[in-house]
Amino acid sequence: MRQRTRLDTVRIRAAREVIDPVFLDTPLYRCPALEPVLGCAVSVKLETANPVRSFKGRGTEVIASRLAGGGSRAVVCASAGNLGQALAWSGRGRGLDVTVVASRFAPAAKLDRIRALGARLELVDGDFDTARERAAAIARHGGVRLVEDSLDLETCEGAATIGLELVDGPGGAPPPFDAVLVALGGGAMATGVGHVVKALAPGVEVICVQPLGAPAMTYSWRRRQVVTTDTTDTIADGVAGRCPIPAVLDDLLVVADDAVLVREESITAGMRLLLHHAGLVVEPSAALGVAAVLEDRDRFAGRHVVTIVCGSNVDVDAYHRWVGAAPAGQV
């Protein structure tokens, strides 16, 4: 394991200068309505308050600004939906030729939005990792820049600007919270935010959260080596990867204090809580932090945690099924 990450705090601060301000300085606020049911103080970092409704635009802005500066203006990525939307947005604004490869089973709302933003969309039979393989083939054969989420430092360092906004308090004051709950998929947000938090506020605990039905990165973190899975089974499509990237795992091992797995019913309960107590419609990946508190209230009792609400691109019909009726005894 490396003792340092691939990320650089100076570059992360510089990234803020090239990211469209529409993605920066997202709301961060304490949400007292959530606190009685969760048993701890909760602050929300709202990464859905932007045109692509997820944090991914921070990283794609860094990538697109560099591509627009010279070289190939064609770019391809694999996406579960949110990265594709973000790259399409950033590319459209800079005149790039964007191709997005996605599973045909991805949420229709995300696929429709990618098309609407002007990207070329190619669908594959299979899951996100199948789409990754196809995107890599397009890049190889066409001489196109491949954007690989989490492996490309721009995606991590763009996401890391969230960490700057969390810990750069007025007058250098330490943040009021003692833990950050971060959704864990490929690892861009977890390693990016984790890098900044550990560099600038090392006393804050970085806790990564992943669905039990898509546990590859968490298993890899626990065993300190890459662990792949054959399948995934979770409604949290944005974090449903099977094949962790070794370099990203090495970064995660440096910055994450813990990685936990949560059940599907906890994810839907978290979505329900965010709707009823915070007025937030979120996709399943964005409710992972709340789900982690629900599953281990004793661990967080009396503490102040921040949960990063990372996306709100959700199929309306599916959302209503997930949050419509709470099982007996649940919120």
Rank of each mutant, 00 (worst) to 15 (best):
S43C: 11
A106K: 02
T130E: 11
D237C: 02
K45A: 14
V281E: 14
V290N: 02
G172K: 04
L34Y: 09
P36V: 05
T228H: 02
F128E: 03
I12T: 14
V180T: 04
S90A: 13
V144N: 08
E17S: 14
T99E: 04
V144A: 07
G91E: 14
G203I: 01
P27K: 04
R66I: 06
V309G: 11
E165Q: 09
L123Y: 08
D315A: 09
A199P: 03
G279T: 06
R145G: 10
V248K: 00
A318M: 10
I114N: 04
V62A: 02
G95V: 02
N313R: 12
R134T: 13
I245D: 13
D125G: 11
V226K: 03
V306W: 08
T9P: 07
R272H: 07
A278T: 13
G194E: 05
V180K: 00
C156A: 11
E17Y: 07
A159S: 11
A86S: 15
Q225W: 08
R73F: 04
E295F: 05
A278R: 06
G95D: 06
I19F: 01
L261D: 15
R92P: 12
G302H: 11
G71E: 05
R297E: 06
V193A: 05
D233R: 12
R120K: 09
L200Y: 03
A135L: 10
V62D: 00
A328Q: 14
V76I: 02
D296Q: 12
M271E: 09
V323I: 07
H304F: 03
D315T: 04
Q330N: 10
P21Q: 12
I138M: 15
G59A: 11
L164S: 08
A291K: 01
E165V: 01
D125A: 11
A201Y: 00
I12P: 08
R222G: 07
L111V: 12
L184M: 15
V209P: 07
V182E: 01
K45I: 03
F105P: 08
A278K: 13
Q330R: 14
V75C: 07
G324P: 06
V305I: 00
K56M: 04
R132I: 15
P174N: 10
R145K: 11
G241M: 09
R120E: 11
R272I: 08
W322L: 15
I308R: 04
Y319D: 07
V226G: 03
A183Y: 10
P284C: 10
L273F: 01
L83E: 10
D149P: 05
R303C: 02
R321G: 08
E157G: 00
L46W: 12
G203P: 03
G172Q: 02
G81E: 02
T191Q: 13
C77W: 08
V314P: 07
S65V: 11
A240C: 14
V52L: 08
V22M: 12
C208E: 00
H320F: 06
A216I: 00
L121D: 11
T229M: 09
V206Q: 00
H277N: 13
E133D: 15
G95T: 06
A214H: 09
D152Y: 04
G59P: 08
I207S: 00
A188V: 05
H320I: 06
D230Y: 02
G302S: 12
G143W: 04
G186Y: 03
G143R: 09
W89H: 08
R104K: 14
D233Q: 11
R222M: 06
G118C: 06
R120D: 10
S150M: 04
V281C: 15
L96G: 14
N313H: 10
